[in-house]
Design a protein around this nucleic acid. Structure first.
Lengths: 336, 336
DNA sequence: TTGAAAGCGCTAACAC
DNA sequence: GTGTTAGCGCTTTCAA
């Protein structure tokens, strides 16, 4: 690839004049400018990203880590963030981590090496390990969950939706509708996302004085298959709840399919509420009630926090908390 | 961020010794090595990506352009490619173009500037404009469609699935089942993907001597809404085909929903075959028949072609063509 | 208005 | 084994 030196030689000027002309900054006579541009074009010139960012310390790129690209929940987040970043002349660079800690570390390393100017970090599980890696970066990072180190020395921001509250709302709704046999399909409770949601369920059940039946409790992995499997287990054990709170739409759809397969009617036999309110929720029959997790807002705020740090030089930590919303559709009505 | 110079100073050696130690290449006494590593750690050292790639001309990153992140069809492609790239020590960097030509051009520019070492380029529409931009890059690019410039001077590779063949198969199947009133919901026929698919439909109809009814032909934009709208139009015009070939799953699901809404039974009143065979196909009731587009294979081959160019220095153009497969499910049976 | 020169941080050839 | 040195391609003073 051509460099400014080759262009300079061709045109018969100095490299700095070429640089000035190309960047449109500083003085350059019209005549030489035109020549330079012409030659640059002919030589198919493109400035070296590496050289430029080595010098300028900026890449104009933001790394966006997503743990699961199969989950439509993250799409809205990407959209929200991209919109803001685009407006500010930043590129959104997506990295699919598959929730893999090693991959996350690798990408954090890339950030630290200056592959991008900042990061939006989405993960199933923030813990000491990956947060330490975040704190080891001088560059700004925004988490899409709430997190606070024990040390209190964090230099990242957070924007998150209260998932605890979301599940709590769903469960409360069932209780208010008079349901007593309420089940829950959640995620791994040793990781943050799973833990919080389950806590929301328990709190609502407690407050409503509804006994928790262990047979109605299942743990999946947020995949559709695991939702289906969990429901199958309850069905074959002949302990099927009348209402089911599910920690995401994918698992809810799995559960719904299992019910249908075994002749259980939704919502008459089993009422279901999912979580995330993705497009999938309206693909099913009946349509799935779900909790809107404001993913686009999360993305937008995350990008804005990043821009504040980068463009305005903010230094203090900021945390933004969003409220979920319950969307009722056909799957959760007491009578259909 | 610390540099090798600061480490060198701290330890009391030269920068090159530090470089050698850190890279684990070349000579360095155990004693100094240990010291250097310790100081590097303490100073939270990370090599500058910019400096390194300026020098080495390599980034170890592959840019992967996807036009629509809402379409699950691309996920498999990403997975297939990532697997291969991972194995070869390359990072997959995703860029969501939203099918926007400007965005595509921007990312091609980034590639040309050396932001990555190669690109997998997925687009709805390859045309002179973006292909010229591809050819202007010295770095290897793989398209996931077939394309050949008039000039014949292309230096990119292609791996694609024969979408023409896919739609042709679907339509043929309906004809073989005795259907005569066959409809088609496709995409914009001014762009490649839409054009090819429609051609497949026409060929099958011609070969089967089945007349094409204009009222059964609709054009959508590959979104669910457009599929729903197209079907609604046919229903309100009271011209509903008995069998419907749809150019992707999303539109097929839209059409299916519209049918249900208006009391039409699938497949008794309208039999449907979609295309892409995404996870969505098994979310519906009845499950959607669809054409498997081997997306994971496409991704894998694309990555392999890239690695051949980068690692083995291949120079000649290669094109790989894959065959689609028809997956029959409940939505297309003559009787259910 | 233009050019010379230093330097961003790293690598690698070469000298010691 | 270790240090010196010369770039990689660009930006940015500063002097002419």
């Amino acid at each position: 690839m051509a460099t400014i030196y080759e262009i300079a030689q061709e045109v018969g000027v100095s490299p700095s004049t070429v640089a000035r002309a190309l960047r449109g900054t500083g003085y350059c006579s019209k005549e030489k400018y035109d020549k330079i541009i012409a030659v640059a074009k002919r030589l198919n010139y493109a400035p070296s990203h590496a050289a430029r960012s080595l010098k300028s310390k900026r890449t104009n790129k933001i790394l966006f880590l997503i743990p699961d690209i199969y989950n439509p929940f993250y799409f809205g987040m990407i959209k929200g963030a991209s919109d803001v970043l685009d407006q500010n002349g930043y590129y959104t660079i997506l990295c699919h981590t598959r929730g893999d800690k090693g991959m996350e570390k690798k990408m954090l390393r890339s950030l630290k090496e200056g592959y991008g100017d900042g990061m939006i970090f989405v993960s199933f599980d923030f813990n000491k390990e990956n947060i330490d890696a975040v704190n080891a970066c001088a560059l700004p990072v925004v988490l899409t969950n709430n997190y606070q180190s024990l040390s209190g020395n964090d230099h990242f921001d957070c924007v998150y939706i209260d998932t605890f509250e979301g599940i709590y709302m769903a469960c409360k709704y069932f209780i208010s509708q008079g349901f007593r046999k309420i089940g829950y399909i959640g995620g791994d409770t040793t990781v943050q996302t799973g833990r919080e949601r389950f806590a929301g369920f328990l709190k609502a059940m407690n407050e409503g004085n509804v006994p928790v039946n262990q047979n109605f409790l299942k743990e999946g992995d947020f995949s559709r298959d695991s939702g289906e499997k969990s429901m199958e287990e309850m069905i074959s054990a002949r302990s099927v709840p009348e209402a089911l709170v599910v920690a995401n739409d994918l698992m809810a759809i799995g559960a719904l399919k299992a019910c249908k397969k075994h002749g259980l009617h939704i919502p008459q036999d089993v009422a279901i509420i999912g979580m995330d309110n993705t497009d999938l929720a309206t693909c099913t029959v009946p349509e799935l009630s779900s909790i809107n997790m404001k993913e686009e807002d999360i993305g937008r705020y995350a990008a804005e926090l990043l821009m504040e740090r980068i463009l305005k030089g903010r230094k203090e930590k900021r945390t933004i908390r969003l409220q979920p919303e319950l969307f009722l559709r056909g799957s959760s009505r007491r009578e259909a």
